[in-house]
């Protein structure tokens, strides 16, 4: 999607509204003038983070994947409507996270007696057994990290969607990047499946509402992660910093 905008003295600028939503692009334009908008159209130089090769991408505003010419690493992807999609996926994930933590997760029946587990039951029992390390690790990787990632995504992409770049956007993106390998909901999903198969011969397992919500949450978060590419947002943060510096000099 492209849009032509006219500003005084006959200047015509082509605005690409693929990555950032249109409302936001216009506000960027109002804030920064034509330099802010045209930054997205200049050829970009990238240094491959795997092999250190410098490569030039002459059409950074066209949707697609850009790969390093030497080693084939993905430099960046440009997909239309990233902001809207990630915001939507993470709002859904937040809702599903609450559902997954509120409803029963699994119940297990053996010969008349039964036990019920919530999403966090394993952490409580491990603390009771004084397995501090395991309990803390499971708490961090399945509750704290995923939840803070979802919240950060919601705040950052929510405000981008409503047309403004939050003050601490750089810190939020930095934290998101750092937390990425430590959120392990997808691994937990495999673990739950394995233990269900392990136990299914010993008794009856009844999946609760929470398990379905959890499954959906894993899928939604994977979908959001697969289209996430922060380059365009970093570009804007850099642009804002440059302007601030110029103002400070004046």
């Amino acid at each position: 999607m492209e849009r032509i905008v006219r500003i005084g003295e006959g200047t015509v600028i082509l605005i690409h509204v693929n990555m950032l939503c249109s409302k936001e692009m216009l506000s960027l334009h109002n804030q920064f003038g034509r330099h802010g908008v045209s930054a997205a159209m200049k050829p970009h130089y990238y240094i491959c983070h795997e092999c250190d090769e410098i490569s030039k991408v002459s059409t950074p505003h066209k949707p697609g994947r850009y790969k390093c010419p030497r080693c084939g690493t993905k430099l960046y992807t440009y997909k239309p409507g990233m902001v809207e999609k990630i915001y939507a996926y993470n709002l859904a994930a937040l809702f599903l996270f609450i559902v997954a933590n509120y409803f029963p997760f699994l119940s297990f029946h053996v010969a008349g007696s039964s036990s019920h587990a919530n999403f966090t039951t394993s952490i409580f029992y491990l603390y009771q057994e004084e397995q501090w390390m395991m309990a803390t690790a499971i708490l961090l990787t399945t509750i704290v990290v995923p939840l803070s990632r979802i919240l950060l995504y919601c705040i950052l992409f929510g405000s981008l969607y409503h047309g403004y770049l939050p003050r601490y956007a750089a810190h939020m993106l930095k934290t998101l990047e750092k937390l990425l390998p430590w959120g392990m909901l997808d691994v937990l999903f495999l673990g739950v499946l394995v233990s269900i198969v392990k136990l299914v011969k010993m008794g009856t397992i009844i999946p609760g509402t929470s398990l379905w919500a959890f499954m959906l949450m894993v899928m939604v978060m994977a979908a959001a992660q697969s289209i996430f590419d922060p380059h365009q947002i970093w570009e804007r943060i850099g642009e804002r910093k440059r302007l601030e510096r110029r103002k400070a000099e004046v």
Binding site: F108, M134, I138, V187, L188, S195
Partner: peptide, 19 residues
């Protein structure tokens, strides 16, 4: 990260088999 599966299996078993 996928090696963590075993830790989660233990965690889930601890939570479920608790009579």
């Amino acid at each position: 990260r996928w090696s963590m599966v075993d830790v989660y299996v233990v965690g889930t078993m601890v939570a479920l088999v608790h009579f």
